[in-house]
Write a protein that binds this DNA or RNA. Structure first.
Lengths: 212, 212
DNA sequence: TAGGTTTACGACTGTGGGGCGAAAACCTCG
DNA sequence: CGAGGTTTTCGCCCCACAGTCGTAAACCTA
């Protein structure tokens, strides 16, 4: 479960309560119950830690099958990527915390690789889909959106380009309102929202398109 | 297992020998053995049907978990996409055949959706990676490569653009040789090969690149 | 040697991302 | 109430690169 907070991309982790890797930080999850789909299982286990209704996007990453990934027992795991908007701040239990993805502690199992794979998937999709809707609040200014992109992508982003690209593709639309001219002075910023809150591919890959 | 043959994108199917879906066409596969990774299991089950050494590329697609996907029993399945170059023509057993992806018969389980997902994954990666190496023979002319792309993508492709794009990206390199001026007359075509035979991303997604 | 066929390659066009600087719209302070 | 500072917005120019087209090259057959 990734989220942008305090200008950093963070991941929700909790401390394992049993062997193997007792006490180590790990991704939330658990065993699949009979009659459940994997997605239902993810939501179900996540609901024990946080408010799942805030989950704006959930997609499957990969199924790990290395026989040695669990030293005690043979175990398969299917990893999912979940995204939560930057403005939600749900309470979490004592054993659960958010960690910056750029400075992860030691993680149990192959969870470090999973987190990095999720980060990379997110970065790629930020460029060619509207997936930003799952990281941004319902309405926002362009500079707020820029900060979210900077945190998630890990490099500078030009506000000018961001606006041009997302508007041209029809990803964003102006609400018509302006942010209350707050504390710091400066021109009041226009408010935008994502036109759709479902994943859509907005940049058909560059080359070899069908003619016409 | 996808392959371009006779100008069409084809998929390897076999007829099920037991319930459920007895007699229906289905994707090759089988149960995971203890100590195996999923990829080893795929190769192992595929080897019973065809020569696995010809498999130029293999990647995981998705894990299916709908409890109703198998009417008789609860069963998870992890789908893989395998690619075979157009020039290999391995013998297959009696119960196994290749079908055009654009005209699939009734398939067992959710296998139809898997085949279409594999096709779509292939089409996307043809545009932004060098994955063509897994569909093309070791050396080829540009028009041969064009036909492969046309079959896989399902629409016309300009040979001029294909050459420019793949050469500029450094995906292709000329062998220096020319095809034997064969039967039909015309200028003899230069031969090319893929510079690498491992999957590489060659088109970093269009937008919001790091500055510099 | 003329005509047909296939391949190769150059020139031109258009789309869209990236950079930059000026203008707009607010604040605060003197 | 105006000057100066800050933040946002917008227009202009550049350029990389995909897409189109037309012509030249290099082979065949008759």
């Amino acid at each position: 479960m990734l989220q942008v907070r305090d200008g950093k991309l963070q991941v929700l982790l909790w401390q394992r309560a049993r062997e193997p890797f007792l006490g180590a930080w790990s991704l939330p999850g658990g065993y699949l119950e009979p009659g459940e789909t994997l997605e239902q299982s993810i939501r179900h286990h996540l609901a024990e830690k946080v408010d799942v209704r805030e989950l704006a996007h959930l997609e499957q990453l990969e199924t790990l099958s290395d026989p040695a990934r669990n030293p005690l027992d043979r175990e398969l795991a299917t990893a999912y990527l979940g995204l939560v908007p930057a403005d939600v701040d749900p309470e979490v239990p004592e054993d659960t915390r958010r960690h910056s993805v750029s400075r992860l502690p030691e993680l149990a199992f192959d969870h470090r690789a999973i987190v990095l794979a999720g980060r990379d998937r997110l970065r790629a999709k930020l460029s060619y889909t509207n997936i930003g809707f799952a990281l941004a609040p319902p309405v926002f200014t362009l500079s707020e959106l820029r900060e979210i992109y900077v945190a998630a992508l890990g490099h500078e982003v030009s506000a000018t380009n961001l606006q041009r690209v997302l508007l041209r593709r029809g990803v964003l639309e102006a609400t018509g309102e302006k942010r209350e001219p707050g504390r710091a002075g400066g021109r009041p910023a226009a408010l935008y929202r994502f036109r759709s809150r479902r994943l859509e591919i907005t940049d058909q890959f560059a080359v070899l398109r069908p003619p016409g």
